[in-house]
């Protein structure tokens, strides 16, 4: 750990550079990994919340992510307001989530295999509809001017031959998005642990029948949570569309990412999703920098090791 912190802050001596390459590469892999982890957290937390409370397996979650991205693109393109696209994507995709919960999941509570199959069917249909509307091109949402460009960080990436230090430059938009996802994670934790609605949700996770016996309208809570989780996926789509790009196939990529994240982190646990997202994001970025052809294998190995030693995930929510 100490070595790791030293590697981040201190300028690297020559021998170190010879072994690990330039410090700049290391630092940008680190930052890319952390910010990618932030994006994965946004997608996976909705997935894990829905699973944790309702035991609903929503394999159309990746489609919701991509749908949010496309909607965000259309809004940002039409109005020029980047922030507005988040709100619209959240509301529209959240509404799709309400429809899903109301018309699909409510009818097959507890039949998890059937839910899986139905949501696979829905994701195939949604993917093809989106391909129909938006085509196979790549889309990217442009960040507003005040967020574009790099920021200088107080981290030395290299020392020039004349002794002056070169500081790391990093895109502001990624940093802002990462901070926002951390803030959102803290907010979710606060809502879950400190408010009345959060109390209902936690009670629902533990014992659904008991909660409804105390007079709480469980179905309403379910719809609320589903809408929130789907909305998060939609918002994550805008984030992903801003710092990566959107194209057909991204839906399965992010579905897979959220699956791996929640398998590693532990199903139904928000802190687990955060830990898993960070691990997977870092593994993916460091993997693609240091052993490019085996990057996927690294992610996969983490999953295998976790399944082999802790099948319930690193942070297990239920006993």
């Amino acid at each position: 750990m100490a070595v790791f912190i030293w590697a981040i802050f201190a300028p690297w001596p020559k021998e170190f550079v010879n072994i690990f390459g330039k410090k700049k590469v290391f630092l940008s892999a680190l930052f890319n990994g952390i910010t990618l982890g932030g994006l994965y957290f946004l997608v996976a937390s909705g997935f894990t919340l829905i699973f944790g409370l309702m035991k609903n397996v929503n394999l159309a979650h990746g489609s919701l992510y991509l749908l949010g991205g496309y909607i965000g693109y259309e809004v940002a393109d039409a109005t020029g307001w980047w922030l507005l696209s988040f709100v619209v994507a959240f509301i529209v995709v959240g509404f799709v989530g309400v429809l899903l919960q109301y018309f699909v999941f409510r009818r097959m509570e507890g039949e998890d295999l059937r839910q899986t199959l139905v949501t696979i069917g829905i994701s195939i249909v949604l993917a093809d509809l989106m391909l129909w509307i938006w085509g196979g091109d790549y889309y990217q949402i442009l960040a507003p001017d005040w967020l574009s460009g790099p920021a200088q960080l107080p981290l030395i990436s290299a020392v020039k031959s004349d002794g002056t230090a070169v500081y790391l430059k990093y895109p502001i938009v990624r940093l802002v998005i990462f901070i926002a996802s951390v803030a959102l994670g803290i907010l979710m934790w606060l809502v879950l642990n400190k408010t009345r609605v959060g109390m209902f949700v936690r009670a629902g996770v533990d014992d659904r029948e008991m909660l409804s016996a105390t007079g709480v309208n469980v179905q309403r809570i379910f719809i609320l949570v589903f809408a929130f989780g789907a909305g998060l996926a939609g918002m994550a789509g805008v984030v992903g569309g801003t710092f990566q790009s959107m194209a057909p196939g991204e839906d399965t990529r992010f579905l897979l990412a959220s699956l791996v994240v929640v398998i590693v982190g532990g199903m139904g646990s928000i802190p687990g999703a955060a830990l898993g997202a960070l691990l997977i994001g870092l593994a993916e970025q460091f993997g693609s920098v240091y052993f490019p052809t085996y990057a996927v294998v690294l992610t996969f190995l983490i999953m295998v090791v976790v399944i082999a030693f802790r099948p319930q995930g690193l942070v297990s929510s239920t006993n």
Binding site: L117, V118, I120, G121, I122, I124, V125, A127, D128, L129, L131, W132
Partner: peptide, 9 residues
């Protein structure tokens, strides 16, 4: 794919 997906659903 739409045809297959809808049929499957």
């Amino acid at each position: 794919q739409l045809l297959i997906g809808l049929g499957f659903l």
